[in-house]
Design a protein around this nucleic acid. Sequence first.
DNA 1: GGCTAGTAGTTGATCAGATACAGTAATAGT
DNA 2: ACTATTACTGTATCTGATCAACTACTAGCC
Lengths: 125, 125
Amino acid sequence: MVQNPSESPPQSEPFAADLLRGHTDTIVLGVLRGAESYGFEIYKTIRDATGGLYEIKEATLYATYRRLVKDGLVEASWGDETQGGRRKYYRITDAGRAVYAKNVQSWTATQRIINTLLNVKGGTP
Amino acid sequence: MVQNPSESPPQSEPFAADLLRGHTDTIVLGVLRGAESYGFEIYKTIRDATGGLYEIKEATLYATYRRLVKDGLVEASWGDETQGGRRKYYRITDAGRAVYAKNVQSWTATQRIINTLLNVKGGTP
DNA sequence: GGCTAGTAGTTGATCAGATACAGTAATAGT
DNA sequence: ACTATTACTGTATCTGATCAACTACTAGCC
């Protein structure tokens, strides 16, 4: 979702939230593929990775975490912050890595298909 | 959705229906951008454009047509088939062309963003 | 005639992902 | 004390996609 950067004129068309639907799991797995992380940090990583242009809502992400844990694609455990707030850390599992690899391929195929259907010369140059 | 081409082993991971979610409108507009068409023909065009690999379900498309008409992006009218079954023809409007152009840009941006988040070298080469 | 398949369009119920919204709770800065 | 930020959670709702039917006409086959 496009953030309205405070002062900028609101003529920039927001891209619909649904455009990334179905990719959230893969994106989170992609973040965790590098290193383990906790919920809020993953959120910030995603937000910052696009220069603040795009944001997946916290509620969406926490729902995603739950789903990924349920499916055995990531493992969760509470950190031992003796001081400071609790953090739940997530690690990608082998199953998660496998699904990630598969999903990246699906994503590539999806791009090809949509670009074909739209007659768009696709992708990042 | 991946069609299981009859005899092929079912190891091919289907890409989730949701992966193209939000793009159906744009895809239909893209088809109509070239020439007017009727419901079932649009369905076949999309199905065939990907070599049968991908299919948007008829029910999904008819819901899409209704939405596009409601939003004024296409116009509908019954053909005058004196013999044979009825066909409802769809034409893209100027508003539809504008939305199409905008959506293609959104799609391009979306690709960039996801490719960034997944660290994928993106798109069709 | 009866059967099947293909074309063409439509409806109602349901699912799942994303979001809005609200809330809890702790810490750090002023 | 107040406020912002960090961090996580739960409930309700929206929407697009799909399923599973259904109507209706045409053409080919036995």
